[in-house]
C-alpha cells in the first residue's frame, strides 16, 4: 500500500493562554494520501487550525504521533521542524501575512531564496495571475490580490503539502473563487497535497475528502465522488 503523506495517531494539544487552559485537540487519528485535496470544516475552536499548525510544523503537539511519510514530525526539534517547513510546506493564511515592506515579487522571493528547487518568483506570480502586479506593495493590492501573492509565495518552493487556513475568510465570493481556483491549479500542477480550513461549507465540493471537526476531534469524514471545479462554486 502507498505510504500516506501524513499519518496521525492520538494527537493532542493543550494550550495555556493567559490563565485559561484550552484542550484544542483531544486525540486525532488520521491518514492523508499524496495529492489529495482535503477540506477541514467545523466551528471556531474545534481544533482545525491547531491540527493544521502541527502538520505544518509551526506548533508542537502535546502528545501523540504525527508522521510525514516516514519522518516522525512529533519527534523533531526546532531545527528539524524548520528544515521540514523549508523543504516541504507551503502556507496560506487567512490574513495573508505578507511582509508589508516588501513588494509582491519580493514577498515571493523571500521563500525562493531559501528553497531547494524553487520556481522563479515571476513564474509563481503568473500561476496566480498576478504577473502584472509584481512591483506593488501589499498596501497597494486588494485583499484577493494579497491572498494570491500569499499563494504564489506558498507554491513557489514547489511544496509537497500546501496548508491553507481560511484562505477565503477575508474575501468576497468572487475573489474567494479566484483564490480557490489558484489553489486547485497549484494542486494539479505541482501535485501538492492540499489541506484547506474553511468555515464556508460550499468549498467542501472541491475536495477529495472533507473532515468535520467538533470539540477537538474529527467527528466524521466525508468522501466526495468527484471534485468540483472552483468555477462551479458559489456562496
Amino acid at each position: 500500500m502507498k505510504q500516506p503523506v501524513f499519518s496521525a495517531q492520538n494527537l493532542t494539544k493543550t494550550y495555556t493562554s493567559g490563565e485559561v487552559e484550552v484542550r484544542a485537540l483531544r486525540g486525532v487519528d488520521l491518514e492523508i494520501q499524496a495529492g489529495e485535496v482535503v477540506v477541514l470544516l467545523g466551528p471556531s475552536g474545534s481544533g482545525k487550525s491547531t491540527l493544521l499548525n502541527i502538520m505544518g510544523g509551526i506548533d508542537h503537539a502535546t502528545s501523540g504521533r504525527l508522521l510525514f511519510g516516514t519522518q516522525e514530525l512529533t519527534a523533531l526539534g526546532d531545527r528539524g521542524l524548520t528544515a521540514y517547513r523549508r523543504r516541504h510546506v507551503g502556507f496560506v493564511f487567512q490574513f495573508y501575512n505578507l511582509v508589508p515592506s516588501l513588494t509582491a515579487y519580493e514577498n515571493v522571493a523571500l521563500v525562493t531564496e531559501i528553497a531547494d528547487r524553487p520556481m522563479r518568483p515571476e513564474e509563481a506570480l503568473a500561476l496566480v495571475g498576478l504577473e502584472a502586479r509584481m512591483a506593488h506593495f501589499p498596501a497597494q493590492l486588494s485583499g484577493g490580490e494579497q491572498q494570491r501573492v500569499a499563494i504564489a509565495r506558498a507554491i513557489a518552493k514547489r511544496p509537497e503539502v500546501l496548508l491553507c487556513d481560511e484562505p477565503t475568510g477575508a474575501l468576497d465570493s468572487k475573489t474567494g473563487i479566484l483564490v480557490i481556483d489558484a489553489l486547485l491549479s497549484a494542486n494539479v500542477e505541482l501535485g501538492a497535497t492540499t489541506l484547506i480550513i474553511t468555515h464556508n461549507a460550499s468549498i467542501q465540493d472541491v475536495a477529495d475528502r472533507v473532515l468535520f471537526f467538533a470539540d477537538g476531534k474529527i467527528a466524521r469524514i466525508q468522501k466526495n465522488k468527484a471534485r468540483r471545479k472552483a468555477a462551479g462554486l458559489s456562496w
Binding site: G56, T82, R85, V99
Partner: peptide, 16 residues
C-alpha cells in the same frame, strides 16, 4: 513578533 513567526513558518531558521 508576528513577522518573526511568519519568517519561521516559511522555513527560515532561528539563526537566519
Amino acid at each position: 513578533r508576528e513577522q518573526i513567526g511568519l519568517l519561521k513558518a516559511m522555513g527560515y531558521g532561528n539563526f537566519a
